[in-house]
Each structure stands twice: as C-alpha cells, then as structure tokens.
Amino acid sequence: MTPSPFHPINLVLGLIIWALWFVLLYGGLSIGCAFAPPDAGDGAWTWINAASLVVALMVTGYLLTCAYACWKASSPSSAAKAQPLNTFISKTSAAVYLVSAVASLMLVLPGVRLPPCV
C-alpha cells in the first residue's frame, strides 16, 4: 500500500512515518516505564527493548519497500512517466524513504545496550 510514486506527498511521507515512530517509541517507553517497569538489574534484555526492536524492524522494512518502489518508478526503463518533474519527485522521495528507514532503525540501537527505565 503505497501512494503513486509521483505524488509529492512522498517527499515527506517517509519522515512523517519516522516522526510517528519516534513519538510512539518515546511515548511507549514512558508509559511502559510508568506502568510496568522491568527490574533495573535485568540490563538491556527486557520486554520493552525487545518490543521496540521488533517494531523498528517492521517500520524499517516498510520504509525500504517504499524507497524501492519510488526508485524503480524513476528508472528510465519505466519511461512512460519519465518527465523531469516526475523523476525529480520519485528519486528524491526514494532518498527520503531510505534516510527515514535508516533513521528509524538507528533510534533503537542503544536499546541493545542500555536498560530501559533508569
């Protein structure tokens, strides 16, 4: 389920998803720690960290598919729509999706090492 790769919404959609994911992560962590904090001694391997890692992988995966779809649409072989404006939008969007994917994944990396609530 992706919008047409030539729609300008793609220019920002990836980062909007990143932002929502960030809010979810930060909010979820706060609420998780407020209501069901794992023991500080458990280190990093707690349900909170694991859950965030799993969701991060899903978000990243989705963003990568979008990036791929935009990229493919912009390649010269799909010449039907190859106007400069369309190419501009789809190529830039592909890069935005890619950046968002990387950024979404990066967010959870410290969770590998740090315990969640202290």
Partner: peptide, 27 residues
C-alpha cells in the same frame, strides 16, 4: 527536507541533565 523533520526530534537534548531515563536520552 530531512533537516526540517529531524530537527523536531531533538528537543530533549537540552534536557539531558534533568533526570530522564538514559535509554530515552539515547533516542
């Protein structure tokens, strides 16, 4: 575009010393 978005996700770096959990700080 990236800068416009990402810069909204940084505000807590002005509050690193107020006692927020380290993992949240790490984000």
């Amino acid at each position: 575009i990236t800068m416009g978005f990402v810069s909204f996700g940084l505000w807590v770096h002005h509050m690193f010393t107020v006692g927020i959990p380290q993992l949240a700080q790490a984000f």
